[in-house]
Design a protein around this nucleic acid. Sequence first.
DNA 1: CTCCAGTGCTACGATATTCGAAGCATAGCG
DNA 2: CGCTATGCTTCGAATATCGTAGCACTGGAG
Lengths: 118, 118
Amino acid sequence: MTLFDRPVRGSRSGRPIMVLLDLLGRRWTMRVLWELRGEALSFRALQAACSGMSPSVLNRRLGELRDAGLVEASAAGYTLTPGGRELLVLFEPLNRWAEHWAQERRAEGRRTKSHGSG
Amino acid sequence: MTLFDRPVRGSRSGRPIMVLLDLLGRRWTMRVLWELRGEALSFRALQAACSGMSPSVLNRRLGELRDAGLVEASAAGYTLTPGGRELLVLFEPLNRWAEHWAQERRAEGRRTKSHGSG
DNA sequence: CTCCAGTGCTACGATATTCGAAGCATAGCG
DNA sequence: CGCTATGCTTCGAATATCGTAGCACTGGAG
């Protein structure tokens, strides 16, 4: 049973980017990937790294990620597969962008105290 | 060298990447960004593009995205800000990767029928 | 064998988030 | 006025996630 057999939440098209966006759009998914960027982590270490997320959800995410071929379990603990590592590399510019974005947003907020959003 | 070896492990430190990951990790957020990659879309058009997502959630996401400075409302409808467009550019390699990933996964799935948590 | 500590993982009630349908207020048209 | 379309809100119900406790297993010590 792969990811592709079940109906993709929010999209019936089955387009890979939709499947990926759907998978990554679940709570904690990207965070788990992110925390696995270094060394392998045990279930409980991973749980601690993610600010004590629920074991039930962690287990579910781990299953989804393993199903997706992004994460695998080794003797040392959970770790990224080569594919998972490739994906994480793609996150690197995201990180750089986030830093820039945060600075701009801080500057914006200083200039315009209140944005009418309603 | 990456920006990956920074000490993120300690819970929510307010690091921009964490904020971004948290924002993007909400249901539909990335999908909305993705659907806005082309022309501007009206509220209802956006709702239809996202397979009929709830207007309540769409409105909430739109608010978060506008708050984050990624999306704005114009006369033609909702559209990406320059910043939002920058972020979306980073998604393109993600798209390319997803296609490759799907092919590999399908091939894998054909060989190993089932293996996962039962 | 028992006790202690660690592992991956599950059960289950409580809470947060999202769904789905209906409705409100506004605007353009005839 | 009625018709259509817009952005958006409301609210009960479904679903996802949380938080705590606990199970089955392993390894070391006695």
